[in-house]
């Protein structure tokens, strides 16, 4: 076990994947000498050469479309999108080509492309640098979408994403890049949890709290704070946003009867809606209360002075737990309770 930061863990995972398969190439803006604006690819161009760690022209559709061509040729491109809010010029190539070519060609052409996206807020950035665009992609079949919440997962899941013959969007919670954690670099990938598997990170019995990416550590704090209030929270880290591993969610909700979902992304049409609907369909008779969503507001990501209000934090998630538990909460007055 080595203690390393989240960012370093992704770097180590990329390095290992590149070591093991010469067809793995990295592409992106400023990922070479600079090592990326977040330094995630630090040192890789020096060690693997400019033909495998490619500083591309500044054009996201160009990067994604050439990655498609490389995949056609048998490569496994790993594309870095510099920030969440800059993925949109590549949206057409992702949705119309990356996601569909495998289906379009009846399985003949595979698209083993990994798209790394630093996402989410909390770093005091200007517009376009703090977004959570994951639902645009979970809505598109043909894509796998994952989000990592800790250095060990970051390390193993980047390798699993690269090894996958499916295209994978790999969402990295940029505000957690400097979080440290233990990473087993010798871990056998075949023994690691499947990339699609959700994981119960805190066990509990009163309410199920589902989240992913940057809010997993907040959710752990919520579980600790709630236990002081006598509420036992079970925290589930989704890890895979598409497809969703519903089994552990169902098992948990059958036990707790209550569900809270939290994410930074806006509420309308978000993952929380999908999870609430699916769990309601699957576990209706077990639910003691309506599922509760605690999310970013349905507004464009606000200027950074507002982000502490916009992002779900411990207080807002605790309030959501109170709602699910039928305890006094911020909406009680509105509901006349």
């Amino acid at each position: 076990m080595t203690v390393m930061t989240f960012g370093r863990a992704i770097n180590a995972g990329l390095r290992k994947a590149m070591d093991q398969d010469p067809k793995v190439v990295l592409m992106g803006e400023d990922i070479g000498k600079l090592g990326g604006v977040f330094r995630i690819t630090d040192g890789l161009q020096k060690d693997f050469g400019a033909h495998r760690v490619i500083d591309t022209p500044l054009a996201e559709s160009g990067i994604m479309g050439t990655a498609v061509g490389l995949a056609y040729r048998g490569y496994r491109p790993v594309v870095e999108i510099q920030f969440d809010g800059f993925i949109y010029p590549a949206f057409d190539q992702i949705v119309c080509q990356v996601a569909k070519l495998h289906y379009r060609t009846q399985g003949n052409v595979k698209m083993p492309i990994t798209i790394r996206v630093p996402f989410g807020g909390g770093i005091g950035s200007p517009e376009h640098h703090s977004e959570s665009p994951e639902a645009y992609f979970t809505h598109t079949s043909g894509l796998r979408v994952v989000s990592v919440s800790n250095p060990q997962d970051a390390y193993t899941m980047i390798q699993q994403a690269i090894a996958s013959d499916d295209p994978v969007l790999y969402f990295e919670p940029k505000r957690r890049y400097h979080t440290k954690g233990e990473v087993d670099e010798a871990a056998d990938l075949s023994q690691a949890p499947a990339v699609g598997a959700a994981s119960v990170v805190t066990q509990g019995s009163d309410v199920t709290l589902v989240t992913y990416g940057p809010l997993v550590s907040t959710a752990r704090d919520v579980a600790i704070a709630a236990s002081d209030d006598g509420v036992s929270v079970e925290v589930i880290d989704l890890r895979s946003l598409s497809p969703i591993d519903f089994e552990p969610l169902e098992a948990s909700v059958r036990k707790t009867g209550r569900l809270v979902i939290t994410h930074e992304a806006a509420q309308f049409g978000g993952l929380g809606a999908e999870i609430a609907a699916s769990i309601t369909e699957r576990c209706f008779n077990y639910l003691e209360a309506a599922p509760v969503r605690v999310t970013g507001f349905d507004i464009p990501y606000p200027p950074s002075k507002f982000e502490s209000h916009h992002l779900p934090d411990l207080d807002r998630i605790m309030d959501g737990i109170d709602r699910a538990m039928g305890r006094p909460n911020s909406l009680s007055a509105l509901e006349g309770k």
């Binding site: 479309g65 050439t66 498609v68 061509g69 490389l70 995949a71 056609y72 040729r73 491109p77 080509q97």
Partner: peptide
């Protein structure tokens, strides 16, 4: 045209 270009990189 981008796919052709990427393939050519390969």
């Amino acid at each position: 045209t981008l796919h052709a270009t990427g393939y050519a990189m390969g």
